[in-house]
Design a protein around this nucleic acid. Structure first.
Lengths: 112, 112
DNA sequence: CCCTCATATCGATGGACGTCAATATATCGA
DNA sequence: TCGATATATTGACGTCCATCGATATGAGGG
């Protein structure tokens, strides 16, 4: 077994392409979908195709405060739109935001 | 530890109703990139284009145990490949895994 | 006005996680 | 064999977070 000599071990990489703010922003975007409850909520909104009343989202086995908590997280992350009509709140996916997420995950420079 | 193969059982956000395992697997994938340090590591690996010695990754302002911790997280999520040569560990991105992550976030196209 | 219902907020709690110092393991070179 | 280096692991600590019950806010209907 021959060993490949690592001649370029500690050569400096190119200049860092991400600032602290960019890294934190990207991480925050992924973190918004880093919980199974929020994945389910986004999945429901994606399959519904349009607006979904928040009152339907308690069917996921979570209490109403918990659902409200997750909806706020997703909304603050910019992934959801919210419209209050009467005493009901209607949520829908911001498709462009999800598309940006996919673009970031694709490691393309096309985002932003 | 489960979710050893979260890539293989990708559950796109736009697919039909998710099972608990699918939601957790998808969330685990996103959670792997839900930390700015790991975003930076993936960014370095992406811009490097190939293998990167782990000894270079301590330049991100983190201690060596912390870098090792994050590398393990990314590796367990299936996003990295690791090869030990001598006393150095060389990491590289699993491009197909990252591509599938992007596909999960893509609402327009089916993933599997 | 009350009552009901949808939603948000507060407070508490338990667990997960990021971080580092110290230590252990392993490899290479002298 | 000994010392230096790269990496992983352990243990501890502080913070963030998911979850819930209780409560507050707000809109309709009677």
């Amino acid at each position: 077994m021959f060993a490949v000599e690592p001649i370029a071990c500690c050569a400096p990489l190119g200049s860092a392409t991400l600032t602290d703010e960019e890294a934190e922003g990207t991480a925050a975007l992924f973190r918004a979908l880093g919980d199974p409850a929020r994945v389910r909520i986004v999945n429901v909104l994606a399959t519904a195709g349009g607006e979904v009343c928040g009152c339907e989202l308690t069917d996921l086995g979570l209490s109403q405060p918990t659902v409200s908590h997750h909806l706020k997280k997703l909304y603050d992350a910019g992934l959801l739109e919210r419209e209050q009509r009467g005493k009901w709140a209607y949520y829908s996916l911001k498709r462009d935001a999800v598309a940006k997420l996919a673009a970031v995950a694709d490691l393309k420079e096309a985002c932003c």
